[in-house]
Every structure is written in structure tokens, then in C-alpha cells.
Write a protein that binds this DNA or RNA. Structure first.
Lengths: 355, 355
DNA sequence: GTGAGAGGTGAGCAAATGCTCGGGCGTGGA
DNA sequence: TCCACGCCCGAGCATTTGCTCACCTCTCAC
């Protein structure tokens, strides 16, 4: 198969690889057995992997999209990205994403962690699926104020309460609206101990779980009564494409300093940047622009979303990055781990996947 | 694919494996990323390999028989076994085996090595293919006496000379016949300085290259005039099935103390046992009994032979050992290296190879 | 309720592995 | 012929990995 290999070399590589991977000898044993230096054996094994004499294949469940996840991580420098299986029904899709988020939290939460939580339908679904293996001494705190037209489970306080119940931890509520009428009113509210204290806890969180909002007329901010359609239209004119915790950003990820930003009660983008792990959960269709904007703002560490948004976001990034790996998730050829001995990276990786 | 895995676990294993093998993270990074202890990650990766979520495949050239080699090593405790590609024509087959032997020597020989060499048509072919990359300060010494009806290239002295020429080393000749008329004559010859010296060098060799002789009427010993057909028939009656360096053994590998053994000039089986690496080269058809006998004598460390003999020897060993691995050499599932977490060995290995 | 056993867990260590770097050798050009 | 360049090689070190062992928890029988 590897045509650029001489017969002699092919035999040697195959022998070494077989002895190493199948028979389980160590490289040192092989070096004695074949009369080579140990580093030489290691270089030859590397070459065997590189030429395809050794093929390491990861058989992933068909419903996972590890390739998309890898592309997302790569494209946006995320610590992690999770693409949930696709569902036709929006509610089912939301639950699927929430399930992924819940699993993720279960893996990552540790006693004593403080988690700042946003509002939103996506975020709100997460607690339902959250079942940690044991009681966690965690604190869940609202990272933003509540919405006037409350349908309970999407309000941050309520979400925190649900989390705390599931985790056996405690909830810290923020008793304030997300947006107040004026900057002056905001400052006076922030001077209240109860409000200031909650925000202080939230700002010191080690983790944040946030949704990503859009700017269409049906977005959470409008539905929940925070904004009128006119206010939102004005934000769009300012270039807004989406928000986290009420902080709007434009397509290039720059925070928009609109009149609205002065009326916001909750963590700022800069507050978020100081939080170690910011987890964004998104499931709704037609959100790629908002997601892109927020990703470009560089506050998100972990992105959990559905397949459709993942593809849309990646598609919008520019031409197909790593199109070679777009094949079925099941077939993942070895790239970075067993890099080419010495060669330009991207290029060469591209050529292996052909094979 | 792995049906005995829960969905959740399958996902986790796939994620870990992908991150480890494809993205090249370390286990420690994964442990942080997934919120697991490092040993846990390592156990999960082990499980991923074991359940087939990760599949390591060695693509060997179709003309190699790495599976047969592994079985030979296993069955007879050999340090190494090399099965040469099959050839229909006996002479072509002999050359193929000799080529393998030559390659093997090239890999193993080091400056200062002393190699004891037997007579025989197989051994005699090796020097023709021997082309070390650089001059080797090696000594090649006859491990047994010569034969009366000399056709030059099968006499040990001549083989040594050819080796020395190719290697740029030196040859030490043994000026004596393989068999003399009586034990008394042998003792007197051994008392000769020239003879004793050569044998002393041979006995102190770090390597021996020997053929394996049969007991049919056309064997080297008869063709070369060492024995008459009658003498050979007598050896057969004593149970002889084959020889190394003129030392005959029976089917169970016991040395035969016949009248002939007292007349032999060359290294004994015990001398051979003291040599670190004894390499046996065999190609002729119909030799499996001789090979088996000699293997059972436990003097051979490395066996180099043709496919037909390899299969015959293994077939005769008892029922198909490791029949699971008898498939094409190209497909070698991982066994020993990534053993089952905790389980009886043979059994479990058998079951992987099914898959 | 209580005790015994099985199974799972992570600290810590020994071995194996990957990698860097200085040095030798061959090749091709002046 | 001699020199420069580049390639390959292996010693030695830092990191990663595999593994052992003591402990902990959970289950089940008594």
C-alpha cells in the first residue's frame, strides 16, 4: 500500500510495527532484537505510522461529530466544543443540547465551585438533565437580572434554584431586573447590598453557564419583555448580532456600547473574561451569526451546540477548513498525535486523509 | 459497534480516544479536560482499545508471514523467527531464505563478533546475498570439519571465506574432515594445534549460523560423502530425525549417542547452547521432522525458513495454536500489547481476533 | 444493623517514550 | 583535492505512561 516505500523498508517497518503493536515488545527490546539504536526504532515506528503501515482508527458512535468539534476547537481556540446529535423538532433539539451540557457539567463540577448562570430557554433546560453522581457542594448564582414577563424556568434565579436542588448545593439569587430604565437607576440598584453581593459572588465564579441570544424580533430579550421591538431594532442598527448576559456584540465580536448597555444589571463581558470556564449553550436554529459574534468576542471557553449551528458557524468562517476530515465521524485518521516526522503541518495532514 | 457498551460509556470512550489518538493530547491533559484522574483516563483508553473503539491495524506486505513468525516464536520460545516468501522452484526458495538470512545478519552483526558457520546448501547460499553497509571487523569460523566429496560452496571453510570477503573481516578455517574413521583418530586430530585453535574460536563465538540436516538418503551428509547410506540407515534406526553440525537428534530433541557421534569433529550441541545467538537456516522441502527435532533440542535461537516448512512445523506441533491469527498477515489485531484489563490471556486473545 | 467481599479509585513510583542536541559521515560543488 | 552543507545518528534528559498498592465505597448475606 505505501508506494513511496522501498520493499526492504516496508518489510522492516511492518516487522517493527507488528512486534511493537501486536506482540507488545518495548522499543528497547526491539532495538536489541533488530540491532538498531532505540531512538532509531522510535523514528521508524513514527515513520510506520506516518506512511500508513500502522493505522490507528477511532470508531466513534455515528451520532457524534468529533470532527466538527475538533474544527470548532481549532477555529475559535476553544478549550472544548460539544456538538449534540441532530433532532428535527426544536424542543427535542434543545433537550439534546441540554443533555450534553448536563453531562459536561457533571464531569467538570467539583466541590466548592461557584457557577454563574444566565437566563434563556437553552440554559433553562439544562437542570432537568443534570444528575450528578453525588452531592456537590456547589454554589449557583445568577449572572444577570430577571425578566419582567417571567415564564419561570428561563429566569436565572429559577435556573439556579433548580441546579442547586439537583446538586445538593446552594443557590444565590439576584433580585433585580436584567434591564432597568436608566443608568442612574442601575447605579442605585448596584449600591444595594443584596444586589452587589450576588454580583460579587457571580464575578468570582469559577464557571459560567450562559446562553447566546440573537437579535431577531422573537429573541428571548423581546419575548421576556426586557426590550421592545424598537429597542432591539436600534441595537441591530448599531450592528448587534447577538448577546451574552445582555451584553451585545457585533459580527466581529466587538462589544456594542449602546444606550442599553448602561441599563444592564449583570456581569459584563470583561467579568466573563475573568471567569475560568465559560460554557455557552445554544440550540436554536438561525443563530449562527449570534454565535459567531460571541465566539469572536473571545469570552467562550466551551461551546455546546447542535449539529446544524455547528456546521453553519464553521461554514461561515471561510472556506471549508479541513474538508478532508469531513467524512463520517467513525473514520478518524491519526493526525496531530503522530505528526509527520518533519514537514509543514496543515498541508501534510491534508494529504494523509486522502490516503 | 461495541455492543456491550452503554451509550454514555461509548461516547466517553470515543471522545477520549479521539482526543488522545487523533488530537494528540496527553493523558494528563485529558484528565484535566474531562475531570477525571489520570489513572482513570489511562484505564478508559485501555478499555477503548480493548472494546475495539480504538483499532490499531498493522498493514504488512502480503508476502510476509508475521503471524506464522509469531506462532513459531511462541511455540518454541525462539528469540526470532523469519518466514521467507514462498517460491515454487527449490533453488529460488533457497535463495529467498538465504536473502532473509543475509538481511538478518546485516542487521545483527557488530564489529568484533565471531560467527561459527556450518556446512550445507542453505548456509552456503547466504554469503551471496550478504552485503553489509560497511566493513565489519568480524571473524567467521568453521564450526565443523569439511566433507570429502567437496562441491566447494557448501563446505564450511569456503562459506567462511565468502563471508569474510563480503564483510571485510577474517575467516578461520578448520582443516579437518567432519567425520573421521574412529574416535581415536578424532582425539588425535583434536590434539593438533591448528584444529584445536579453530574449534576454540568457534566455541567462543557470539553467533552461529547453521543448517539443519535431514536423514533421508539424499541428505547433505550422504551427498557429500560423510556417511554411506548404510550408516545413515543405522542412525535412523537409532531414532535420528535430523542434525545440526553433525549432531543427530531424535524426534523429541534428545541428542543421539551413536557410534557416529564419537567420530565427529565440530561443535557439540552443548557448545552450541553456550553460543548466544544460534541462527538456523532451512529451506528444503520435507524437512519439518528434522526441524522439529532440532528445535526441541533447544539450541536454536533464531529460525529462518520458508513458508512451507513453517506451516508444516506448526501443523505438527499439535492442534492449531492461535488459529485465530491464521488470517492474512495484513490484518493483525492488537493482542498482547493492549491486553485485556484483567482476564485469562489465551482465551481472551482468541476472542479478540474473531471480531 | 453489621461484617465480609468485590470493585473501583487515585497517590506515587518505575519504566518507557519522545525529543533535543552535538557530532560524524557522505555528497556535491569549487 | 578540499571544503561546505546537509543528513542521519545516538547519548542523555524531560515527559509521559503503565502499574502497584492501600484505601474507600457499595452490596449483599447474615
Amino acid at each position: 500500500m505505501p508506494d513511496n516505500l522501498g520493499q526492504e523498508e516496508y518489510e522492516l517497518l511492518a516487522r517493527l510495527a507488528h512486534r511493537y503493536y501486536v506482540d507488545g515488545r518495548t522499543q528497547e527490546e526491539l532495538s536489541r532484537e533488530f540491532g538498531l539504536s532505540r531512538p532509531k526504532v522510535q523514528r521508524l515506528l513514527e515513520r510506520a505510522r506516518w506512511t500508513g503501515v500502522v493505522d490507528i482508527h477511532v470508531e466513534a458512535p455515528p451520532w457524534l461529530h468529533l470532527d466538527l468539534e475538533a474544527q470548532l476547537r481549532g477555529a475559535f481556540g476553544l478549550a472544548d466544543a460539544i456538538v449534540s446529535p441532530a433532532r428535527a423538532d426544536p424542543q427535542a433539539q434543545r433537550e439534546e443540547v441540554a443533555r450534553c451540557a448536563a453531562r459536561y457539567l457533571e464531569r467538570r463540577l467539583r466541590d466548592g465551585y461557584v457557577v454563574a448562570v444566565s437566563h434563556g430557554r437553552d440554559t433553562g433546560e439544562v437542570p432537568r438533565f443534570f444528575r450528578p453522581a453525588r452531592r456537590l457542594g456547589c454554589t449557583f448564582v445568577s449572572a444577570m437580572g430577571g425578566s419582567p414577563r417571567v415564564d419561570a424556568p428561563t429566569n436565572p434565579n429559577e435556573i439556579c434554584r433548580a441546579f442547586a436542588e439537583r446538586a445538593g448545593g446552594r443557590a444565590v439569587s439576584l433580585f433585580a431586573p436584567a434591564y432597568v430604565e436608566s443608568a442612574e437607576m442601575r447605579d442605585r440598584l448596584l449600591a444595594q447590598d443584596a444586589v452587589a453581593e450576588a454580583l460579587r459572588v457571580a464575578a468570582a465564579a469559577s464557571m459560567a453557564l450562559v446562553g447566546i441570544g440573537g437579535t431577531d424580533d422573537d429573541c428571548t430579550m423581546v419575548r421576556s419583555g426586557c426590550f421592545s421591538a424598537e429597542e432591539l431594532a436600534r441595537l441591530r442598527r448599531w450592528g448587534a448580532v447577538g448577546d451574552v448576559l445582555g451584553n451585545y456584540v457585533d459580527a466581529r465580536g466587538r462589544v456594542i456600547a449602546s444606550p442599553e448597555s448602561g441599563r444592564l444589571i449583570g456581569l459584563s463581558i470583561d467579568d466573563l473574561r475573568r471567569i475560568e470556564t465559560v460554557i455557552a449553550v445554544v440550540s436554536e436554529a438561525e443563530k449562527p451569526k449570534a454565535i459567531l459574534g460571541v465566539l469572536r468576542a473571545g469570552v467562550v471557553d466551551v461551546l455546546i451546540l447542535d449539529e446544524g449551528n455547528a456546521r453553519a458557524v464553521l461554514g461561515a468562517t471561510g472556506e471549508d477548513r479541513g474538508s478532508g476530515t469531513t467524512r463520517g465521524a467513525g473514520t478518524a485518521r491519526v493526525t496531530r498525535r503522530w505528526e509527520a516526522p518533519r514537514a509543514g503541518t496543515k498541508e501534510v495532514v491534508g494529504s494523509t486523509t486522502v490516503r
